[in-house]
């Protein structure tokens, strides 16, 4: 093995796209492997960059174990959970393209929860809490809110891309918001009127966009099309018929 080859095995070249004052600035970063066979995660790379070359690099992370859902970034243009995504030579790490960037890899997220404010009324209303929820309910509540599902979502794309301050909440929905609404529909404790409200909210967020869409992709493998979108479309049709 030549000297250069040995050296190459110790490093991994990646591009980190930093962002400030509305401008992207790609930075080449040489990740130093901690041992020959290390396959670092994107988060490992960002942490080492912060420790060495880019001390003020801004990025979100929380638990390092794919549970908290806050470290999502784009790797080569696709949304990935940074703490559990292996990085390869020449990969490009960048803020998620589907949400407005604040600084570096940090995006603004709360316009999404705000679109459901006051619309997911939940209360047992005296209903018996001691009922088992279905497997589907539990599949939906495994969502970690990583927002990978926003990628290529035609409904979400209808929102203005202008990241202006006045944009406190998004007008159009996204797979995550639909999932939260479908959870109410699937909840055995919800009353019928609560379920109907949830379906109506989904329609108001632009559910018709989903009719011509091949389907969305979940960051952790929830069947969004089968368990969220299609049931909501079917339920909304039923309500419309009535």
């Amino acid at each position: 093995m030549t000297k250069k080859e040995t050296k190459d095995r110790q490093y991994l070249n990646v591009t980190i796209v930093t962002h400030s004052e509305g401008k992207d600035m790609p930075v080449n970063f040489k990740y130093k492997k901690r041992h020959d066979r290390e396959k670092p995660m994107a988060l490992d790379v960002l942490l080492q960059a912060q420790e060495t070359k880019l001390p003020d690099l801004a990025f979100r992370y929380g638990c390092r174990a794919r549970n908290c859902g806050v470290c999502t970034i784009d790797i080569n243009g696709l949304p990935r959970i940074a703490c559990r995504s292996v990085v390869r030579e020449n990969d490009k790490l960048k803020a998620m393209s589907t949400l407005p960037v604040i600084t570096d890899l940090v995006v603004r997220r709360d316009q999404i929860s705000r679109q459901l404010r006051g619309k997911i009324y939940r209360n047992s209303g005296g209903n018996d809490l001691n009922v088992d929820a279905s497997e589907d309910y539990h599949e939906l509540t495994s969502c970690i809110e990583c927002y990978a599902c926003l990628h290529n979502c035609p409904m979400h794309e209808k929102n203005s891309s202008d990241p202006s301050e006045s944009n406190e909440r998004y007008e159009y929905g996204n797979p995550f918001s639909l999932l939260k609404l479908q959870t109410i529909v699937m909840d055995p404790v919800s009353s019928n009127s609560q379920k109907n409200d949830a379906i109506t909210q989904a329609v108001n967020l632009g559910l018709d966009t989903c009719l011509n869409c091949p389907g969305c992709k979940c960051g952790i493998g929830i069947d969004l099309k089968g368990k969220v979108v299609n049931p909501l479309i079917n339920a909304s049709k039923k309500i419309a018929e009535k």
Partner: peptide, 18 residues
Amino acid sequence: KNSGVAFGHANWNSIVKD
């Protein structure tokens, strides 16, 4: 089921709901 994430959803709901 879903460990703490299930609590996360309930907590999220309690803040956003009304």
